[in-house]
Design a protein around this nucleic acid. Structure first.
Lengths: 222, 222, 222, 222
DNA sequence: CATGAATGAGATTTCATTCAT
DNA sequence: CATGAATGAAATCTCATTCAT
């Protein structure tokens, strides 16, 4: 579907503008969806609100997406990809594996400030759990992104993490994900019970516990 | 069971058949609600399904609860209370503070197997976050239950936990809650990424890290 | 069904009290119905409100009446009868036909202060119009009451009114009814547009116009 | 009908097909509502019947009105406006104040044949009385229409009516309204008690009594 | 006679989706 | 591509009525 540069050149002016506008609308819809799905949850989010937030009506939405679920998947793909790309690019900036570990920690801890994403992540997971038929599709999307980004190489960039088995690495990743989402939710639920600063501190601690090299040998449970 | 002598004890503990039926139905509705709210989430849960699961019609539901939200609150109250009472009664069974700490750990880790409750807890928190106006009501209910159970005494039963400030205790409790809920969700979302055994292992580790006495002095961040 | 005095005498004490209580409940229900039907209208009036206003529950209502419609009819019968009896007894107090006419005027004008009855009358008429099948029943009830009270004699008590045909008398009666109900509604709707005093003044004027003897000969249209 | 030259006049009087359809549907809904509210009353009228009468579904109804109450208000506005405009245009056709008074009488008496409107008027007033919170809104709408039409000028067009105070004029108007609605209801309730011809005769008489110039001086009561 | 739990029909309203324009 | 009118399914909630107690 993508029109190559050469071809596009034929009617450059209009075509491009048209395409740009189209792309801009789609992009705006995704942005609005991000905000509104995070705010209201998948079920309570209304197509009209999402379209309205971009200054369009429902029709515009259906010109770009087939259904609410379709949008949800597209959002999942975009956001997941974005975060993984961000992580990857950060990793690549550091030559030493030590620096990479520190950068990873910073990246991880920093995500505690992105409540929107944490809420979205919760929604994605709840949705997948509650819609077994669509779950495979989400999983496929996830895998595709990871493969496209050759994310395996990320952990390979930190040799210390390689000392343990593949499964254990995955478990630790998932555990961190769990802690992150859980903490953000608790903070959102009751900011007085745990402040953002406190959540961040706990998060860092968890990271250290789960990722510090020395721990791996000592504890064989995961 | 009969308390009075022939007189149907209006003010005794006895119940008429009406009252018995009332209580039975209400209880059945709450049970069904627990299952269905956990399974479908607050928004997607249908009153009809909840009523139907008890063998009644929607009308019966409205004889016991004013609205879906009302039921949700009643469920919150019942379940939260139940868990806190369980915790309290466990604590009271152990004479030594050491035994109590071990029991607390076991209780905590064991909750990883109760997916239903974890999902409910997520729903309660998401709901509270998304309905600011009702949030205060949930919080009030929560506080009332804790006070009724004199839950403060629980941490007092474990002197080691008292060495640190009140706030820090609360933060650690919330953090554990977060980890628990997060892990259960991750496991539900993708059981292959983290098995129940693995989740339990991580959970125990987190408990040790957050609750072990020695840690408190060393780390002043929370 | 009515138990004669002799029979009732057998178990006088209890029986009578029981009957009294029964009758009192029924009476209370009718009283509450009067208020609530007038206030909310037939459709919006709730059985529960009516029963509740007497301190009872729905069950008590259904022990005395078969249905909402049934109650409505009973109320119609009671209220209509009451008013006609009142009118009759007033008429009978005056020896001269002139005095009777003045009393009739006073009675008529005074009804402007009884908003409740006017609203009920509106409801009865609207109901009858909207439920053709039940209309006959209402009409029968009405006729029965009038006949039981030999109301025809009332107009016979004012010879001046007899100078014109039967139909014309009826038309004037209905017209006065219409003016009365219409004015009460207008006053209820917007008390600033027409005060009670003003409504009463208009009402008296209408009475004079429609009932004054001299008019009858002059105007043959009704 | 085309105003612009080829250009679809967004700011001209022209309408797109969309707008035409919108207006047509809305109009049809109001027409159906008029019939059904008059027939069944506000409470008993079902949205489904109203929508169905236009060949649409309930959904279409909600694309045009927010609620049943909203529709009721729109209908009130339309119908009240229509009648006042009709009155105004009739008044303007007559040069002499005498002719205008006769036309006013004819207009008023003629309304006795419009049972639908009389029933609607009753419903509006009952509704307003029974919903104090919405009453202000109805009153505001009414006032707005009257002001937009400069209805004050109508009575100014008949100098005889000006001889008496403003309040008195209003009272007489309201009284006529009351008589009209009351008579139509009585006729609907029991056509045999008062025929349409008879109702019209009474109506004319009332008009003469309340509006005839000579009366004003003689009777100071209203 | 009276209670009140339960029914069940129906009412209003919401919203994802379709389709003519 | 975008509008917005309309659909239609479903959801929550109400209430007259029934019936076991």
């Amino acid at each position: 579907m993508r029109v190559g540069i050469g071809v596009r050149g034929a009617k450059t002016g209009e075509q491009t503008k048209h395409q740009q506008r189209t792309e801009a609308t789609r992009s705006a819809l995704l942005d609005a969806a991000k905000r509104i799905f995070a705010r209201d949850g998948f079920e309570a989010a209304r197509i009209e609100d999402i379209a309205g937030a971009t200054g369009h009506t429902r029709g515009a939405f259906y010109a770009h997406f087939n259904s609410k679920v379709d949008l949800f998947f597209a959002l999942f793909e975009q956001e997941t990809g974005e975060r993984l790309r961000g992580l990857r690019s950060i990793m690549e900036q550091y030559p030493s594996s030590d620096g990479r570990l520190r950068a990873l920690r910073k990246f991880y801890v920093g995500r505690a400030s992105d409540r929107q994403w944490a809420m979205l992540a919760l929604e994605f997971k709840l949705f997948a759990w509650r819609h077994p038929k669509l779950r495979a599709r989400l999983a496929r999307t996830h895998r595709r992104i990871r493969e496209a980004l050759k994310l395996e190489t990320i952990s390979q960039l930190i040799p210390e993490l390689m000392k343990v088995g593949r499964q254990s690495r995955e478990v630790r990743r998932v555990a961190l994900e769990a802690v992150l989402n859980g903490l953000v939710l608790e903070h959102a639920y009751d900011p007085e019970a745990i402040s953002q600063t406190q959540a961040i501190a706990v998060l860092g601690r968890m990271f250290d516990v789960l990722m510090a090299a020395k721990q791996h040998a000592a504890n064989g449970s995961f």
